[in-house]
Amino acid sequence: MVESVIEIEVVYAAVDRQVLRTVSVAEGITVREALLRSGIGDEFQELDLAACPVGIFGKVIADPQVRLIQAGDRIEIYRPLLADPKEVRRLRAAKAAAAKAREQ
């Protein structure tokens, strides 16, 4: 029996660069298997593709070892945030308030 092949995208944004790769894989494989077959781990040695958090079109996948991919899926590999967004906003607001107080 001939195996169906589908196309998906794998996306990763490192600190210094971003990669979007179109990959042809067998239909019926899991998200984690697709990541491993994409070859993106060879390009980014720091990635642990067996354990890193991933999502499809911005929605986190709770169990990528079980979730099957579909044609056209974009698998996104997530990395830890460098700074807490709430803290960054708080610091920016405090800096703006201090600048405004100096102007008056």
Rank of each mutant, 00 (worst) to 15 (best):
R90K: 10
I61Q: 06
I61A: 04
D16E: 12
V25C: 10
D73L: 07
A99G: 07
I29A: 07
Y12C: 03
R89M: 06
A71Y: 03
A50S: 14
K59L: 11
F44P: 10
L49V: 11
K95F: 02
L49P: 13
I29E: 08
I77V: 13
D16V: 06
D42L: 05
A34E: 10
E9A: 14
E87Y: 02
E27D: 13
I75D: 13
R67T: 15
G72Y: 02
R102Q: 03
E27R: 08
V66D: 10
P64K: 15
G55L: 10
R90S: 08
V25Y: 00
V10P: 03
I8M: 06
Q18C: 11
E9W: 00
C52S: 07
T30H: 08
D84Y: 01
D73F: 05
L49C: 09
I8Y: 02
R32H: 12
E33Q: 15
E87Q: 14
L81G: 14
Y12W: 06
A34T: 11
I6S: 06
E7V: 07
V25L: 05
R89F: 03
V2L: 15
D48G: 13
V88Y: 01
A13D: 02
A50I: 04
V2P: 08
R90T: 08
V2I: 12
D16H: 12
I40L: 10
R74H: 08
A98E: 09
G58M: 04
V19A: 01
V11P: 01
E103M: 00
S38M: 07
E76C: 11
E76F: 07
G72H: 07
A13P: 04
R21S: 10
D73A: 09
P53I: 09
R92S: 11
V11T: 11
P80T: 05
L82R: 15
G58H: 07
D42M: 04
R102T: 01
L68N: 13
R79N: 04
E43Y: 09
A13K: 03
V88D: 04
Q65F: 01
E27T: 09
E46T: 05
F44A: 03
E103C: 00
I6W: 00
I61M: 07
L91Y: 01
L36N: 12
D73M: 11
E9V: 01
A83K: 14
E27M: 04
R79A: 06
R32P: 08
Y78I: 04
F57W: 15
D84M: 06
F44V: 04
G58R: 05
E87F: 00
G55Y: 05
L47W: 00
K100C: 00
D84W: 00
L36H: 05
A34G: 13
I6R: 01
K86Y: 03
E7M: 05
A97M: 10
Q45C: 10
Q104L: 02
R90V: 06
L82A: 05
A97E: 13
V10N: 06
G41V: 03
I61P: 02
